[in-house]
């Protein structure tokens, strides 16, 4: 009997040793893995405030946000109409224009092609804007329309809309 309870006690001790040891090892590894996440100085640069008062209608600017280009375009009346009147069934990734903008004239997009990550053309006046008057990705020929939606080519999705808000009429905060 005595030996039996001895054994039980030992089993318990061994089990708790192994358990606590395993928990301790996991807890020890955690900070190491965590250290690979973006550091605080990187996170602090995660929001960008952009003054858009200088942009004329029909013009675009490119700003850097989290190391990626963000396109801000002040759309013309025609471009807005074009974007709003598209038939949803023509779209590969159907999305209403109204869901992609906060104010009709301002289109804010992450300028990274959803195919393989190239930066599409269409920001400069001299650039090819593609068949749908928006952006054209030269890598594999994806065409985006005036709402940044994919219309033709291999890209599976529309250009992403980053989180942003209007601090006032002329300042956009991205991130």
């Amino acid at each position: 009997m005595a030996e039996n309870s001895n054994n039980k006690r030992r089993d318990f001790l061994q089990l708790s040793t192994v358990t606590i040891g395993a928990v301790g090892t996991a807890a020890f590894i955690w900070p190491f893995l965590k250290s690979m996440n973006p550091a605080e100085d990187t996170i602090a640069l995660g929001t960008t405030e952009v003054d858009v008062s200088q942009i004329e209608e029909g013009q675009s600017i490119t700003v850097k946000w989290r190391g990626k280009p963000v396109f801000i375009r002040k759309r013309t009346k025609d471009e807005i109409d074009e974007a709003k009147t598209v038939n949803m069934s023509d779209l590969k990734d159907p999305e209403e224009d109204i869901d992609r903008v906060k104010k009709d004239e301002w289109l804010v997009l992450v300028g990274v092609c959803t195919h393989l990550g190239c930066v599409p053309l269409g920001q400069k006046l001299t650039d090819s804007k593609g068949e749908y008057n928006g952006w054209y990705c030269p890598c594999h020929g994806s065409h985006y329309d005036t709402s940044g939606r994919i219309r033709k080519g291999p890209a599976p999705e529309n250009l992403a809309v980053p989180p942003y808000s209007f601090l006032n009429d002329t300042t956009i905060k991205i991130g």
């Binding site: 900070p31 965590k34 250290s35 690979m36 550091a39 605080e40 100085d41 990187t42």
Partner: peptide
Amino acid sequence: FLAMNYTPHTEMAFDSVERIMRDVNYGWLL
């Protein structure tokens, strides 16, 4: 893991070590 955040350049080494201590997650612990 420290080397992932350290910069071996005379202009930046000191600051990069302090960045590890201040901004990198658990960098001070490492």
